[in-house]
Design a protein around this nucleic acid. Sequence first.
DNA 1: GTGGTCTAGACCACT
DNA 2: GTGGTCTAGACCACT
Lengths: 127, 127, 127, 127
Amino acid sequence: MMIEIDFDSEVPIYTQLVCQIKKGIALGSLAPGEPLPSVRNLASDIGINLHTVNKAYKQLVGEGVVIQVKKGYEIAKKTPPDISEAYLKVMMQQIDNLVVDAMVFDLDILDLLKKSKTKLEGEMPRD
Amino acid sequence: MMIEIDFDSEVPIYTQLVCQIKKGIALGSLAPGEPLPSVRNLASDIGINLHTVNKAYKQLVGEGVVIQVKKGYEIAKKTPPDISEAYLKVMMQQIDNLVVDAMVFDLDILDLLKKSKTKLEGEMPRD
Amino acid sequence: MMIEIDFDSEVPIYTQLVCQIKKGIALGSLAPGEPLPSVRNLASDIGINLHTVNKAYKQLVGEGVVIQVKKGYEIAKKTPPDISEAYLKVMMQQIDNLVVDAMVFDLDILDLLKKSKTKLEGEMPRD
Amino acid sequence: MMIEIDFDSEVPIYTQLVCQIKKGIALGSLAPGEPLPSVRNLASDIGINLHTVNKAYKQLVGEGVVIQVKKGYEIAKKTPPDISEAYLKVMMQQIDNLVVDAMVFDLDILDLLKKSKTKLEGEMPRD
DNA sequence: GTGGTCTAGACCACT
DNA sequence: GTGGTCTAGACCACT
C-alpha cells in the first residue's frame, strides 16, 4: 500500500491520508479485515506526527470503513458500509459544485468522470 | 440574482459566495458583461463583512469568470473563460475522490451526477 | 455554569467535561442555542490544554447535543437530540453492570437512582 | 460458569472478566466459597494472557467479592461483601451520569433499569 | 478573537 | 508494541 502525501497542498494531511486509504480499499489493495499500519509506524514512515495519523484513522472509523480492535485498526469487514446522511449531503454538494464548474468552464463533466474511473481501474492490481 | 448563504455551514462564506455566483453564471441569470453588485452593497445586503465579499470577487477574477473594471466588477465577456491548469487539477482531484467514495460506499456516481444536472436545469430561467 | 474537574480522577478530563456540560443541559443552566465558552477561554479558565476542551466539544457535537457554528460552539436547539444506537448500547451495558453490582453488594439500585434524581433536581435553578 | 469475552470491545478484557464473574455471583451460578478456576487454566481456556486474568482476580479481591486462599482464589463466603466507600462513590458517579444522559436524551431511566433487571432474572438458573 | 491543523514529546493502560 | 490522554506551543484561515 503506497501512501502519497503532498505537503504543499492546501488539503490537510489527515484528509489526504483518509482519501489515500479509501482509494486503497476501493482498488482492493486493502482487503476487508486487513490490519492498518500502527499509528506510530505510519507516522514515522510518512514523516508526520502520530496525532495526524490518528485523526485520519478516527475519521475512517467514523465513516465506517475502518474499525478499531484491541490490537489496532483494520479495514471493516462489511463492504460497503452504510453511508451517513450528513456525508451523502456533503457529497451531493460537491457534485453540484462540480456540475456548475463544468457548465461555467464548458467542460464535459461526464467525460472527466469516466476518465477518472478508467484511470483508477488501471491502477487496480490484477489477480 | 438570489444569493443564499448558510451561516452555520462549515463551508467558508466567501466560498459559498463564489459558488453561488458561478451558479448564476451557469444558469444564465448572470449574463456576460453584467456588472456585479458593489462590494459594499452586496456585503450589507447579505449582512457580512465587506472583506468577505472582496475575497470572493478576487477569487472569481483569479478563475477568469469575473473581471475588474473601473467602476467595479463584472461577469467576464468571454464564455467560457480559460480554465487554469491549477484549477483543473483541483477539479480532477475532487472527481477522483468522489469516484473513490462512490466505489467504497457502492454508490452510482453517474446517477448522482445526472440527478444533480437535472436539478440544476430545473432551476434555469426560461427565455 | 460551573465546571468541576477532578484532576486526580481516572476518568479522562475530556470525559468529565462532557458530563459536566450535559449536566448543565439537563438542569437547564445551559439553554438551547446558548453559546459555549470558546475553546481557549474554557481551557485557560479550567487550567487545561485547549486540545482537551476541543476533544470534549467534538464529542458533544458527535452526540448531537452541541452544534458548531461559525462563531464557535453552542447548545443544540433540538432537544432531545436523537440518540445513536451505539450510544444506547453502551448505556444499556452500563445499566446491566450497575444492576449486577447492586445484586452482588445487596444495594437497592432503584433507591440509589431515585436519590440521584432528587439530588439533581435539587441543583436545578428555580425560575 | 460461562465466560464471554468480546475481544473487539473497547472495554478492557480484565474489566469484562470482572463483570462476568460478578454476574455469575449475582445470578447464583458462582456460590459463596466456590473456588475459581486457576489463573493459568482460565487464561488458557479463554485464550488470553495470564496477567490479564490475574489483574481481574486482584480487582475482585479488592472489591471483597473474591478472596485469595492457599490453593488459589474463591468466591467470598460473606454475601453480600462490604462495599468500599471508594467503589460506592464510583457507582454513584455512574448513576448520576446515567440520570443526566437520560434527561438529555429524554429516556426513561427507570424503565431501562427494570428491563435490565428482568433480563438478568431471566438468565437465572432454576433450583 | 474564533476554531483548525500540526508538531514534539511525555506518561499511561492494555496485553 | 499497541493506542489513549494530555501538554505547550506554533502557524493559519475566517471574519
